[in-house]
Design a protein around this nucleic acid. Structure first.
Length: 344
DNA sequence: AATACGGGGGA
DNA sequence: TCCCCAGTATT
């Protein structure tokens, strides 16, 4: 059996039972595709369930506050996805009469929707013949056809999309797209795929040339920068604390956190921090480190060496937040973990 | 063409 | 440790 039919045949025997495969509602397909960008199914699945319960239709999502959407998104990462999700929901609900665009070209214009997601929605919800090209597809195509062009060069992106068009299944595009991705995820896996039981083993170029481990080719590795965070966890006489929104460009935009003092080098002792103006504005009773050493929070491009300082105040915070309400705010996992440990 | 953007899981 | 995940937007 040739390539596309073989994948579909494999898929029908091996596919997982996932909730977004029971519908072609573009809203649900869109939601699942955004959530699964750079995210494993196992991690995204519980979020998909919560979102579809909380927001059954695009209007429900459109009418929510961004803070609430971010809170529901908390822990999934790449928070611009949530902000763009909300913006696009409002666009569809309020400007497009509640109906998603039904073509690849029009979908591509929406915030947060790139080539992959436009192809996925167009094919799965509307049957348009656009092949998806995600990380799985790059891997399957590179190996099966023996392509050494790097998948993250501009030439490679163009080449693989064209190749994907040439080898796609013409009649069953929706099934085919999900088939090749599922095949990449569970059979043609990144590490140690079990090629002995692969239905395509007889015609796979990489297997024939013993290049499975070499493909796909991907260039570059990211440089990691170190940052030094000092979170000031106020505790006033009423048991209130302070949170503030991140309003500058960069990580965690629009999420909340404790007042932050970032330094270029690690802070040796609290005297350096006590000189900060907003700490001098309060009557500090005590200031103690919560953990012995730094918490090292690792992101793709940054390692955050973090100290949480518990600062007891004599008076009360003007804009204090009660401990009970701290958990209502969308915060980064780094901060959420601390909140859990501290036991607000 | 490169880089920023989260967090987690598997080897 | 390192890789990479149903990628997109910005520089």
């Amino acid at each position: 059996m040739e390539f596309s039919n073989c994948l579909i045949d494999w898929y029908l025997k091996n596919k997982r039972d996932l909730p977004w495969r029971k519908t072609t509602d573009p809203y649900k397909i869109w939601l699942s595709e955004i959530m699964l960008q750079q995210t494993r199914v196992a991690q995204g699945l519980p979020y998909y369930i919560r979102f579809t319960e909380q927001y059954p239709a695009v209007e429900d999502l459109a009418n929510a506050h961004e803070d609430e959407v971010l809170k529901l998104w908390q822990g999934l990462g790449y928070y611009s996805r949530a902000r763009n999700l909300h913006a696009t929901a409002k666009k569809v609900a309020f400007e497009l009469n509640g109906k998603f665009p039904d073509t690849y070209k029009e979908l591509l214009k929406l915030k947060g929707i790139g080539d992959y997601t436009a192809s996925a929605i167009a094919s799965i919800s509307f049957g348009e013949g656009q092949p998806v090209v995600d990380g799985n597809v790059y891997r399957v195509l590179a190996r099966y056809f023996g392509v050494h062009t790097s998948i993250n060069s501009s030439l490679g992106v163009k080449y693989f999309k064209e190749l994907a068009h040439e080898v796609k299944h013409e009649k069953q595009i929706a099934i085919y797209n999900q088939a090749i991705m599922e095949f990449g995820a569970n059979q043609c896996k990144p590490q140690s795929p079990d090629c002995k039981v692969c239905p395509l083993k007889g015609s796979c170029a990489a297997l024939a040339k013993d290049e499975v481990k070499l493909l796909p080719v991907k260039i570059k590795k990211t440089k990691i920068t170190k940052r030094y965070f000092n979170y000031i966890v106020f505790v006033d006489v009423n048991g209130n604390t302070l949170l503030q929104r991140r309003t500058k460009k960069g990580i965690w935009y629009n999420l909340y956190e404790f007042p932050l003092i970032e330094t270029v080098t690690p802070v040796k002792n609290k005297s350096v921090l006590l000189e900060e103006s907003y700490l001098q504005d309060h009557h500090v009773v005590s200031m103690e480190l919560f953990h012995k050493g730094d918490i090292i929070h690792k992101l793709s491009h940054q390692h955050l060496y973090t100290k949480f300082w518990i600062v007891h105040l004599h008076g009360n915070l003007p804009n204090g937040i009660s401990f009970a309400r701290v958990k209502e705010y969308a915060v980064p996992v780094l901060v959420a973990n601390f909140i859990e440990e501290f036991g607000f």
